[in-house]
Amino acid sequence: MHIVVCIKQVPDSREIRIDPNTNTLVRQGVPAIVNYYDLHGLEEALRFKDTVGARVTVISMGPPSAEKSLRQCIAMGADEAVLVSDRAFAGADTLATSYVVALTIEKVAQEFGIVDLVFCGKQTLDGDTGQVGPGVACRLDYDQLTYVEKVVALDEKNHTITVHRHLEDGVEVVQTKLPALITVLTELNKPRRASLPGVLKAAQYKPVVWSTNDFANIDRSKIGLKGSPTIVSKTWVPEPRKVNTEMIDGPSPEAIAADVTKRLWSSEAASRLGWA
């Protein structure tokens, strides 16, 4: 069993600010993290490593600095990590991204062994489209299972997988043949904390790096900005909603807390909720 996990390094959205003058995201100095949906995909893959001895390869298309995120995956237990990095990939939209990610998975299959299962996150924290997973599945001609909140069974003998898909009106239980691509929700599991041998291994690990030249039959018109038909016509920041804030002060923390509680209980909201 060989599982590929697709990860994207994204700016930590908890730390993102918007420049009030230019209305653009301030990315400078914002720490980069692994898109957290992807960590749930990795965790699920690692569980199959623990239970059935699956091999786990992590891949990412991104700048050289994404090496940090790949190392984090190695620390958690991934066997191998591949960084696909080249200036020519820059400016990719979801079409171009899924093209390169799909090519990478094909190459991983050639070099590290046949791929049975691919995990993607449901979406990213920055791009947020949720299109890359399905795009990759189409290109590879894999069955796609989106919005997966639970993997019920992985049958190695019959080469099938059974999952719960979380839909708006309920849960769908589906089974399909491998190879398949799964996009995961955070309900799936709780990502593990890396062990000490894991972080030590990661500290010494260098990911495999591939550039455009490493792909024999890459179609250069399909990558990067050139391969991205998406046109950003306009971006804007929604007007912040006006909220009435009031500073509640007092002689001591206890007094402030007492005041806050008193006001909450006598508020309109409390009576609406039937608390009072």
Binding site: R193, S195, L196
Partner: peptide, 9 residues
């Protein structure tokens, strides 16, 4: 000893 699993060094 560290606070990680298998944390002795």
């Amino acid at each position: 000893r560290t606070d990680r699993d298998e944390g002795d060094l």
